[in-house]
């Protein structure tokens, strides 16, 4: 796909996503019923949980495309990886900030070593390393390979981190925790949550396309600069 096509698609999806986000906000203020036990603060879930899903999706795409990049050496795979990883950083930051805002009311503390919270924090730092490695290499090809290795090892380590943080918690029970999940979510709450999932996913792919287009322009410009220099 051409850069202008990518950009057009990105702008369309992003605009759709932003409109969807406004609708979600409106619905969550005016339409959805309030959860009895947690009250108003439960509304944070309509952005927190979809942000968590998007973070996972983004880092998953980044790890997968990184592995495929090392295998096939197609430049487009690396562009997709870096675009998705950046999206994961943004949505991960959303998840890591909105989570404690909810936790302060529901748990009485901003931070607990709750397994999923810990896992996201570590994932975020693994991908911080991904970007630091990329920017700290003089040879861009080398940076791409190094970053891909970081993403793959990070992905392989995730099951171990997940198991270990759960293990740790079972040894040191956290203070009273109101479990957020419950499969029997009332109808309108479930509808809004699913709608929000869709909106965040659309928003992510819109932004992803924009970032991909940007990376494409940058790579082309770098190649041209190298030609001029040569």
């Amino acid at each position: 796909m051409s850069v202008s096509g990518l950009r057009k698609g990105g702008v369309t999806l992003t605009a759709l996503g932003l409109i969807g986000l406004v609708v979600i906000y409106w619905l969550s203020f005016f339409w959805v019923s309030t959860e009895i036990r947690q009250g108003i603060v439960q509304r944070i879930f309509y952005v927190h949980v979809p942000a968590a899903w998007t973070t996972g999706l983004a880092f998953g795409i980044a790890a997968l495309t990184s592995a495929m990049y090392l295998w096939l050496r197609d430049e487009r795979l690396d562009r997709a990886a870096v675009s998705a990883a950046e999206g994961g950083m943004v949505f991960g930051a959303i998840m890591l900030t909105t989570g404690p805002l909810w936790g302060k009311i529901a748990w009485g503390t901003y931070w607990t070593w709750e397994p999923r919270l810990t896992l996201t924090l570590l994932l975020w730092f693994i991908f911080l390393g991904y970007f630091m490695v990329r920017s700290a290499t003089d040879n861009p090809e080398k940076g791409k390979r190094f970053a891909a290795v970081v993403a793959i090892v990070g992905a392989l380590d995730i099951p171990f981190i997940h198991l270990s943080v759960i293990w740790f918690r079972s040894l040191h029970p956290a203070p009273v925790v109101i479990k957020p999940e419950g499969p029997s979510l009332p109808g309108d709450m479930l509808t809004l949550l699913l709608a929000s999932f869709a909106v965040f996913t659309v928003l992510f792919f819109g932004l992803f396309l924009l970032r991909y287009a940007l990376e494409t322009v940058r790579v082309e410009l770098d190649a041209r600069a190298r030609e001029v220099a040569a």
């Binding site: 490695v133 700290a136 970081v150």
Partner: peptide, 20 residues
């Protein structure tokens, strides 16, 4: 050691993986 930052980068890359 292949980057400009050298060993400064090592803990950032390794610590999150070492939690288990």
């Amino acid at each position: 050691s292949g980057t400009r930052m050298g060993e400064t980068l090592l803990p950032i890359l390794v610590f999150p993986l070492l939690v288990p």
